[in-house]
Design a protein around this nucleic acid. Sequence first.
DNA 1: TTATTAAATCAAATTTATTTGATATTTATA
DNA 2: TATAAATATCAAATAAATTTGATTTAATAA
Lengths: 107, 107
Amino acid sequence: MTTEIKVQDISMDSFFEKYEGKFKAIADKKRLKIMNILTQKGAMCVCDLAPLMDMSQSKLSYHLKILLDANLLIKETKGTWSYYQLNQKELNHLLSSELCCVFKPTC
Amino acid sequence: MTTEIKVQDISMDSFFEKYEGKFKAIADKKRLKIMNILTQKGAMCVCDLAPLMDMSQSKLSYHLKILLDANLLIKETKGTWSYYQLNQKELNHLLSSELCCVFKPTC
DNA sequence: TTATTAAATCAAATTTATTTGATATTTATA
DNA sequence: TATAAATATCAAATAAATTTGATTTAATAA
């Protein structure tokens, strides 16, 4: 007895996995707050974000990494500072324009 | 020493919590697949969805409840059957139009 | 009424995600 | 060079989500 698995099923599965990763990244109120702050302030370094988030540095780095790994943030390093900003293109692909100015800066 | 907490902070917190719930609901590949199937098929009962999802009934009910609690599904009971369909209005509020026909039926 | 079907719920086991505090790495400054 | 600041990473502890199999509930059919 064999179990048929179609090619589409396999590629759809990795398609769903891709969006799972992105939605998981934004499915957290702390990370939504980070996105909200970055929507308003543009690029920020970890040390300036930490007090606004009322969060330890290691905890904040953990959450930033999750958003970065999902390609929802762009990171730029200057000296010892890491500046994070929202990946607008990616967020526009994902979120409705009604969420503009809340979780993403552009429509 | 007192710690000031602004009224906005409290209401923003419940605002972020609301979206956390909705994004958590869709942040799972099984539930994204459910949404994809319902996008194509419209309303379906659990017993017809279960074989398509290759999932036990209790497991499927668990995942449907998560989507329902997030108000992303609408449930209609007819006799012993429960028919589930996507809450288009809510999904349109949440997801970009580029995800139309994949995770939601309308733009 | 009894049996059957569809679906929801429950508790326990398992898996995954988050928090915490410590340490490592890198760059700039005295 | 020695020190300090910014950030990343790690391992252990904790918390949250998911799976599983069994049970319950409710509606229909025999």
